[in-house]
Simulated assay, not measured.
Amino acid sequence: MENRTGTYVAFDGLGEADPTKSDFKYYATLQAWNANKNIQFSLTNSHEKTDAVRDTSKRATLYARIQERLRASKNMLVILTSKTRYTGSALSYEIEQAIDTYRIPLIVAYPEFSSILYVDSHSGIWPKALKDRINDTGIEAIHIPFAKECILNAITRFHVNGEHLSSGKNHYKRETQIKWGLI
């Protein structure tokens, strides 16, 4: 297996060509944090390890590139919002492959919430692929707000060669979220 050092970032593009009208804006935020030398944030982006895929690419090409990127990934950061589609997006395929084929821990980030204390309260925005697998034995996931400290902590700790999570419904303790100024 390839060297698994990257973080695969997954989100629903919502079928939009304009990235400002989709959840791409959160991916762009991650890239900006990573590029800013004044911010302590480092992300080894799995998407930058392979050739780009255009919106006009055939589905088979897209899926092959997703698999290539997942093989090189140590974890997956999944960005979910109230606009995330239940089915019908590449996000569903990415989640299925990450869990079923590559056994990659998920870091599920919610930009619309400042803290996550009860995971099930967010199930209404989970895509079907996540909802169908969240209670399965062996799935590892932590649910976090889309906040720099949480994301950085999670991607450095929870990965195929790092700390393992006990289930698909983990979250940071209230005290930790208070320490980060989220509560």
Rank of each mutant, 00 (worst) to 15 (best):
T44A: 13
V108A: 03
G13K: 04
L77T: 08
G13F: 08
I151P: 00
A64Y: 08
T5M: 09
S46M: 14
A32V: 12
R133G: 07
R65A: 15
S22K: 11
P19A: 07
I155F: 01
R174G: 03
A32D: 13
K83V: 13
T176S: 04
S57L: 11
K49L: 14
G6Y: 01
G181K: 09
Y93W: 12
L182F: 05
Y8E: 00
K128V: 10
A17K: 08
Y93K: 08
R4S: 09
F146T: 02
S42Y: 15
H159A: 01
E175G: 06
N161L: 10
K49Q: 12
K148Y: 07
G162M: 06
K169D: 04
N38F: 15
A64D: 15
Q40Y: 15
I104L: 14
A64I: 12
D55V: 14
L30G: 01
E112F: 15
H122R: 05
H159Y: 07
L117F: 14
N170W: 01
I99V: 15
S46K: 03
W33S: 05
A90G: 11
G124N: 08
K49P: 01
T81L: 06
N34W: 04
E175L: 05
N153I: 04
E112Y: 14
Y118Q: 13
D23M: 08
K83D: 15
A10W: 03
I66C: 06
L117A: 11
G6M: 01
E94K: 05
A129P: 03
A129Y: 02
F113Y: 15
D51Q: 12
T7N: 10
H143L: 08
I66T: 10
K74A: 07
T50M: 05
D12H: 08
S46N: 10
T87K: 11
V108P: 00
A109W: 01
M76H: 02
L70T: 02
L14G: 02
D51E: 12
P111Y: 15
G138R: 07
I183V: 13
G124Y: 06
F158S: 00
K21C: 10
A28T: 10
P145N: 10
Y26C: 04
S46F: 02
Y93V: 15
L77K: 01
I104C: 00
R174H: 11
F11R: 02
A28L: 05
Q40T: 15
